[in-house]
Design a protein around this nucleic acid. Structure first.
Lengths: 210, 210
DNA sequence: CCTACCGATCGGTAGG
DNA sequence: CCTACCGATCGGTAGG
């Protein structure tokens, strides 16, 4: 008995990069899944990697979760929602389009900085979901795109922005620029998310030319 | 004998989305791999998917290729090299930074349009390579980044561009915007690569403001 | 290029 | 939460 317990603890140590201990929960599993999916992507992370990270055996994960895909669904939807929640009130506020765009960019970078790995999963790995869930994600992504479209269109109407020949492409390019930060943002870098968002907003609004 | 042949042909038809026939070759396998990796990503495409697409049995692939990773290496390196080859002469030319930037963006969009799936693999899936090959890719990506850095720095020196507080971030944001086209460019869309590149160049140079 | 097969690993489950 | 295990699938090979 004592020997069995010892073996088990040893195995947990071997497995466990997990800090100290604390009970295993669905939330802990999701947290480790975010980290692992963010680092190595969904299809190449095995359930055994996740169970190692939380310090239990693979089969025991299913006491807390339903399936691997269920983990992905929750991570992706929560991730996108955090962007919608942060940016919707800004896009719909009464301020000028210029100010709204600056604030939306800042909000984006703040969410990105506080949830970098979740963002990586949410914006790139939703494609691994089965079709029904993929459709729901596509709707959320459309809502997100519409927030920026609204700001741009308002800015054109009000005369703040120039008469863009193709606002749709401008929106996609802007969002693409923001999302690319998942590939180069570093929490240990010299610039804060706020400072970065000012550089990006200047680029988007003023451009490179003098 | 006749019956065996019939069975084999039938099996090939079942497998084969392959056009007409023609001999299987390393090039054909690479072409189908580009398409499949581009559509569904490297880790979730099996060798059986590739062998189905070219119309042979899985084991027979290894007459033509060495390994699955070898396919990825070739696709990724050829893909990045096509960008370096297109943009290096422009970045190193004698023209103004403004013109060079416009032409570099146009060249980028032309390569992207003519090799959309290869670009998707090259820019996003090199992360699945083993570490030694990953390092080589990182070097190529640095060269690519340096081409744009050179244009931007030249433009700042010459006074064409404003005094960017952080040129590195501006370069990464610019490249991020260009690369995002792998997610929204459609060959059947209304705008040509040239027209798109003008929209993107205007965005980068002039910005959104009036 | 096929036949026949390999060991490894995958997500997940039954029963305690 | 573990023990013990499942069928399916993976990349790849030997021998013809």
């Amino acid at each position: 008995m004592a020997k069995q317990r010892e073996l088990r603890v040893t195995r947990q140590r071997e497995r466990g990069t997990r800090a100290a201990s604390g009970p295993v929960s669905a939330e802990l599993i999701e947290r480790e899944a975010i980290r692992l999916f963010g680092e190595r992507t969904y299809p190449v992370v095995g359930m055994r990697d996740i169970s190692d990270a939380v310090g239990i055996l693979p089969g025991s994960l299913y006491v807390h979760i339903n399936s691997k895909e269920d983990l992905l669904i929750k991570i992706v939807e929560r991730g996108i929602r955090s962007y919608l929640d942060a940016i919707a009130p800004i896009a719909e506020s009464e301020q000028s389009a210029t100010i709204r765009l600056r604030e939306a960019i800042k909000a984006h970078m703040l969410v990105l900085a506080t949830a970098l790995e979740q963002t990586r999963v949410s914006f790139h790995q939703w494609t691994y979901l089965s079709s029904e869930h993929k459709e729901r994600v596509i709707l959320m992504r459309q809502r997100y795109e519409e927030l920026f479209s609204r700001i741009l269109n308002d800015g054109i109407s009000s005369g703040e922005f120039r008469d863009l020949s193709n606002p749709r492409i401008a929106v996609l390019a802007l969002i693409g620029m923001l999302n690319s930060a998942t590939e180069w943002y570093s929490p240990t870098g010299p610039l804060s998310p706020e400072a970065l968002s000012e550089v990006l907003a200047d680029n988007a609004l003023i451009g490179l030319q003098k």
